[in-house]
């Protein structure tokens, strides 16, 4: 139900002709990034130091987004929204549904995120754009995570991100890199709860993305996300993906990726597709 509602809103905002909105913001095309599976602005699986939408100094912006990840034995559906102000603060919300296609059943999680730009700028000056953020996650289906050894049904991730663009990078293309350090004890980003029988304390993990813009509308890139391994019942592995992003206008962006999620809940080699659609206004 929620999935369809979010989808309808997205369609209404992007495709219905004659519906007009205020200026979409002054930040340059694509610099708002895409929407991650946790709701924050960024790549696909890594939150970036950039803020969602095109809200520049003195402006407000918002996004709504839907994402689907389909790997061999699981399917993740995400509906999210974000609000940004002044190229300074971003508040985001995401609802995740993780369909255990093979095992049977479903896991759900809600994520409330806040991100603030501390200093620097993605495009201008020598410093990278540096932001701090938090993601408060509440698992809505804790029976299974609890049964496999998770200790908490909610927790908060904290992260520090730095992002920089090189306008005239290799091959005279614009390149963007982002690195994120996250303090977390989430199992499979929280879908399997927080903390566990092997390790119950939070740890720092590293995440990174690199993208090259073929032109200002199309980008290709890679992402990597390190993850904790807190549960004895199954190995948890790092995630990675290769993506193509399309920014036809400041109103809409589309990201497609081939993703490798490693082993999840004892089922190895989970690879598949990722598709994300964002409307900004």
């Amino acid at each position: 139900m929620h999935k369809w509602r979010a989808g309808m809103v997205l369609v209404a905002f992007t495709l219905v002709p004659g519906v007009s909105f205020a200026d979409s913001g002054s930040k340059l095309l694509a610099t708002g990034g895409a929407s991650t599976i946790e709701g924050a602005g960024g790549g696909g699986i890594v939150p970036w130091a950039t803020l969602s939408s095109y809200a520049d100094v003195g402006e407000w912006g918002a996004t709504v987004n839907v994402s689907e990840v389909a790997v061999d034995d699981f399917r993740l559906s995400v509906q999210g929204a974000s609000l940004s102000w002044n190229n300074r603060v971003e508040v985001s919300y995401a609802r995740q549904t993780f369909d255990l296609s093979t095992i049977g059943g479903e896991l759900e999680q809600n994520i409330l995120g806040v991100k603030a730009r501390l200093f620097g700028d993605l495009l201008y000056g020598n410093l990278p754009q540096v932001s701090v953020g938090l993601q408060h996650k509440s698992n809505q289906s804790f029976a299974l995570p609890s049964a496999v050894g998770a200790t908490e049904d909610s927790d908060t991730d904290y992260y520090l991100s730095a992002a920089k663009a090189w306008l005239d990078g290799p091959f005279h293309r614009t390149w963007v890199a982002n690195v994120t350090a996250r303090r977390t004890r989430a199992n499979q980003i929280g879908l399997l709860g927080f903390g566990g029988d092997v390790d119950d304390s939070a740890e720092w993990v590293a995440e990174a993305s690199v993208a090259a813009f073929i032109n200002r509308y199309w980008a290709v890139g890679v992402e990597y996300r390190q993850k904790p391994d807190n549960l004895s019942f199954a190995d948890e592995q790092d995630w990675r993906d290769v993506f193509v992003a399309y920014f036809p206008s400041k109103r809409v962006s589309i990201v497609g990726a081939y993703t490798d999620l490693g082993s999840i809940a004892g089922l190895d080699d989970q690879t598949g597709w990722y598709l994300s659609l964002q409307a900004a206004f």
Partner: peptide, 17 residues
Amino acid sequence: PVAAQNQLLAKLAPMYD
């Protein structure tokens, strides 16, 4: 061409400060 656009933008961007 995109390559030339990027080269010009990179030369102008330092004026930001």
